[in-house]
Nucleic acid binder design. Sequence first.
DNA 1: ATTGAATTGGAGCCTACTCTCTATAACATG
DNA 2: CATGTTATAGAGAGTAGGCTCCAATTCAAT
Lengths: 196, 196
Amino acid sequence: MPRPPRYDQSVLLDAAVELAAAAGPAAVTMAAVAKQTGTPNGSMYHRFPQRAVLLAELWLRTVGHFQEGYLAVLDSDPEPRRAALAVARHVVAWSRAHPREAAVLLHGPDAFDRADWPEEYAVRADRGNRRVLAAVSGLAEQLGATAPADAERVALALIDIPLALVRRHLRGVGRLPAHAEDLAERCAADLLATGR
Amino acid sequence: MPRPPRYDQSVLLDAAVELAAAAGPAAVTMAAVAKQTGTPNGSMYHRFPQRAVLLAELWLRTVGHFQEGYLAVLDSDPEPRRAALAVARHVVAWSRAHPREAAVLLHGPDAFDRADWPEEYAVRADRGNRRVLAAVSGLAEQLGATAPADAERVALALIDIPLALVRRHLRGVGRLPAHAEDLAERCAADLLATGR
DNA sequence: ATTGAATTGGAGCCTACTCTCTATAACATG
DNA sequence: CATGTTATAGAGAGTAGGCTCCAATTCAAT
């Protein structure tokens, strides 16, 4: 019986991503998203009761897209070493394919006012992170890493270093060079080398 | 003949750093810095004609401190390989010793509204960056790196990866584990290994 | 056709912030 | 001591953005 929505949430989030990528999280104002999509001010507050919810949804959708592919690649190869190298490459490749979403990720949740999110959203964000962390730890174990410092090394190789590579280039010229995937894979291979 | 200043610029910048580290660059408002230091609103605008100048000075002072130490360590050892490893360690050690300033650095200049800075400040920031980049490139050359991709690898090892390590921990619990320096050095050593 | 919940559209309130303006205080020099 | 120069001090104008409110509109279900 209700009237169907006219301004789709996903359209609003698309605009929000674009604004965040182009001018930073602070540029994601209710007014800016409304203007960009032609939505009236009041309608924005039907989809998102507060700005913090808009930012939270924006973050969760983006990081969800990323993690989905990340976990898929991790699980795609039963051989742990190959899976690790593939996932390091994947982070770079995904960022190349989705530069705007990657720019959002590089800002991190705090830049999207994580402190103001309703608890539900913070919980969902944590759950996603733990899922990835657990998958990486599992891989580290298969690779023979036992100490917590080893798990950290693997996380550095499979998450932080590929993202550092992406950051270096997206913050600069804005294009990832063709060999970035190779570099990420090589760093990962070095760090995963056993017997160290 | 002039009346001596009562509110020192460095004191205001100290407060600004603290605010930025604790609650992000957006928390560095003229009002917040004034309140924290007991300065009246109007006096702020004697030191910093606009907020953008406050943010620019904050950034330049912080990054200057960092780069000063960085270059000193780079030059402290004539043997390029040892200098490289020392500098990778240094990034982590400096961040441990100056957690608030490190937090500022991790936000990057754009978060401090670099686009709004008067040109003079942007030029100074560029000059500093180029100086470090040149030093790193010089080291890369001494290490036998020739292709631009090699220089990038060295920059990744001596700047981005140590910073990624710092970011991982400062964004989390807020304390750097004791072995972080070792990890940074090891990553650097792996990446600098010749004949690859 | 009627009903009523959901949605839209927009005027405008409120807060927080940047920045201006004016008056006054302190100090060096002639 | 008079004077010029610079700093302090505070009030408040102007503005941007988050958010509220409410009347008008739409449309599925009855």
